[in-house]
Nucleic acid binder design. Structure first.
Lengths: 335, 335
DNA sequence: GTGAAAGCGCTAACAG
DNA sequence: CTGTTAGCGCTTTCAC
C-alpha cells in the first residue's frame, strides 16, 4: 500500500492523499472523508523512510549512556524516553561504555542515522582535556547536543545539571556539624560531576580543618561489585586510616560503606555515619536506611527535554540550567 | 554533500560512488581510491533515509519493555542493545508501561517506523487471554517478534526463556528439605513467567503437603517501594498467617522479606529463610546476603539476538528455546 | 480545492 | 569495470 494505491482507489491525486494525511489546510470535507475511508479500508500506513527522505527527519533522538543497566542511568534513560515519546520523538539508544573511542564511534553512528538531536546521559561524557571533548563539539556542529549532569562550553551544546558541588558541600557540613571530623570521601568517577562533588567535599573540609588534607579514596572496580568496594574500605582501614563517616559519590558506594561499618562492628549512626548520592532505591535496601542526596533526576530530564524540543523548534533556549539537590535524611546519619 | 556531488568531484558516475560505498565487488583500485579520497576530503556521509527508502530497512530493531528502569529489565535492555549493536543494528527503545493499550500503541508505532524486528523484553507482554495477545500476532504478521521470558504460539513469534517453573520447583524443594514447612510465596506479577514460577512453587508444595493449600501473597504496589512490600508482609502476619520462609518472585520482594524478618526479630537463616529471583545486585545489598535464582539473563539475551539475526537472514530458527536457571546460595538459606 | 510534476539521495538492474 | 536509468514513497511548490 502506497500513497499511489490510495489515491487511485479514492479517485484523487496523491497530493490530496498526502494533504489529508498531514491534516493539511485545504481539503474539502467530502474528499477528505473519502480518502480517510479508503485508508481505513485498506489499512494503509505511510512509509517512514520516504517521509524521512523528504522532510530530512524521522523525529528520532539519540540517547547515549555509558551503561543503561546502571541504576541511575537506567532511570535517566527511562525518564528521557518517556518524555520524548510524549512529544512524538523516538529514542535510539546507544550504550557506549566508558571509553572515549567507543563514545566517539557511537556519536558518529547516531549522526549517520540522522537523529535530530543527541542526549548524553551522565557526566562521564565530558573529559578534563578539551581535546577529548572534541567529539562532542563536532557532533554539535551538525545537531544539538544535550548534556545531562555535565557541562561544556561549545556552540549548540546545552547542559542541564544538578548543583553537585553545593550538595556535597552541604552534606559534608552536615556531617561535620553532627560531630564527625574524620570523614572519608569515597568516589569512583573523575567525571565532570565527579569533580564537582569532590570539590564540594574538599571545600567544606577545608573550612572546618584549614590546611589539612582530607581523606579521599578512589575506587576503580566494577560499579556493581559491592564486595569489592567493601574490600577497598577494609584495605584503607588496614593501611591505618581512621574514619567514622563516609560520604560517597554514589549510593552503591555508600551501601558498601554501611556494610563495611557493620562488619567492623560500628553502630550506625551512633559510631559511624554514611551519606550517599542519588537517593536511589538502594537507600531502602540496607539497615539502617541510607541518608542520600536527591539530585532531582526527573526534573532534570524533564527540563532537558523541554529545552531540546525548544531548540528543535528554533526557539532561544538557555545554554545551561542548574537545579539544587536536597539531602534526604534517613538512618545512617544522626538526627 | 550527496552522492552526486562526490561523483562529480571524482569524475565518475553515482553508481561507482555507490559501489565503493558498499564495498561492491568490481571497482578498479584506482577509481576506488579516487572516490575514497574525495569522500574523505569533503567529509561525505550517506543519507540513511534515502538508503532506507531504497533498501526498505534501516537496520533497526525495536525493543519494548514495560519499564527500563526496573533493575532486571534495564539489564536485559543493556545486553540486547550491546549485542544488536555488535551486529550492526540500532535499538529503538520503547518503555510501554504495564497497560495493554499502551503496549499496543507502542507496537504500532514501531511498525510504523519500519523497524526490522521487535523484541518484547519481559514476560508481562503475554497475557492470559489469547485475545489480549492479538497485538503480538498482528505485529508478527509484518515483522519477526521475539519474546524474552515469555512464550506464545503464533507464526513469526519466537521465544527465549528461562525454565522458571523448574527453578521455582527446585527452590521450593530445597527450602522444604532445609526443614521449613510454612513457606509463603510472595509475588507481584501474573505474567507468563509469573504464572510458571507460581506453578513451580505449588507443585513442590503439593508434593510435600498433598491436599493442602499453600500460602501465597500477591503484592500489587510499586515495584520499587520496599517499604510497601514490608507493610504487606506485616499485614499478612497480622491476619494470622504463620510463615518462616519466603520464596519471592523477584529480588526486590525478597529483600523486603529479609527486612520484614529482621524487624520481626527472626534470625536469618536460623529462624527464617528467604529465596529471591533474578540474582541481581540486590542480593549483595542486604544482611545476610540473599540466596537467589540466577536465570541466566545474558545467555538468554545472547541467544535471542542470535535467533533474531538468523530469522532476518531467512534461516530456519527454533521457535522456542528454554534455558535452565540455577540457585545461587547465600546467607538467607541454611547450608 | 485539487492535480501535475519536481525533487529528496540512494540502490540495482541493465547496457555497454 | 563503469555509466544510465528507473524506481523507492512522500512532500511540496506551482498552476489551474
Amino acid at each position: 500500500m502506497t500513497i499511489y494505491d490510495i489515491s487511485e482507489k479514492a479517485g484523487v491525486s496523491i497530493a490530496t492523499v498526502s494533504r489529508v494525511l498531514n491534516g493539511s489546510s485545504s481539503v474539502s470535507e467530502k474528499t477528505r472523508q473519502k480518502v480517510l475511508d479508503v485508508i481505513e479500508q485498506y489499512g494503509y500506513t505511510p512509509n517512514a523512510f520516504a517521509r524521512g527522505l523528504g522532510l530530512n527527519t524521522m523525529k528520532t533522538i539519540g540517547i547515549m549512556c555509558a551503561d543503561s543497566s546502571d541504576l541511575y542511568l537506567a532511570k535517566a534513560v527511562y525518564y528521557i524516553e518517556q518524555k520524548l515519546r510524549a512529544s512524538g520523538y523516538d529514542s535510539l539508544l546507544c550504550c557506549t561504555g566508558y571509553e572515549l573511542a567507543s563514545k566517539t564511534a557511537s556519536m558518529n553512528l547516531l549522526i549517520t542515522k540522522k537523529v535530530d538531536g543527541i542526549i548524553l546521559a551522565g557526566s562521564n561524557f565530558v573529559y578534563e582535556k578539551d581535546q577529548d571533548n572534541r567529539y562532542i563539539a563536532e557532533a554539535a556542529a551538525q545537531i544539538p547536543v544535550m548534556l545531562l549532569n555535565a557541562s561544556m562550553d561549545a556552540p549548540n551544546v546545552y547542559s542541564v545539571m544538578s548543583d553537585d558541588y553545593t550538595s556535597m558541600y552541604e552534606a559534608t557540613r552536615q556531617m561535620l556539624s553532627d560531630g564527625i571530623e574524620d570523614i572519608l570521601y569515597f568516589y569512583n568517577s573523575q567525571s565532570y560531576s565527579g569533580k564537582k562533588k569532590l570539590a564540594g567535599f574538599r571545600a567544606a573540609m577545608a573550612e572546618a580543618h584549614p590546611g589539612q588534607e582530607p581523606l579521599t579514596e578512589f575506587y576503580r572496580g566494577s560499579h556493581e561489585d559491592i564486595h569489592a568496594m567493601v574490600r577497598h574500605l577494609n584495605a584503607v582501614r588496614d593501611k591505618g586510616a581512621r574514619f567514622h563517616g563516609v560520604i560517597a559519590a554514589d549510593d552503591t558506594l555508600a551501601l558498601a560503606a554501611v556494610k563495611y561499618a557493620a562488619e567492623a562492628g560500628y553502630r550506625i549512626p551512633e559510631d559511624f555515619s554514611v551519606i550517599g548520592y542519588n537517593n536511589s532505591m538502594l537507600t531502602e535496601c540496607c539497615e539502617p536506611e541510607l541518608t542520600s542526596i536527591d539530585n532531582k533526576l526527573e526534573t532534570l530530564c524533564q527540563h532537558l527535554i523541554t529545552t531540546l524540543l525548544g531548540i528543535l523548534e528554533e526557539r532561544e533556549m538557555p545554554k545551561k540550567t542548574v537545579f539544587s539537590g536536597e539531602i534526604i535524611r534517613r538512618g545512617t546519619t544522626r538526627k
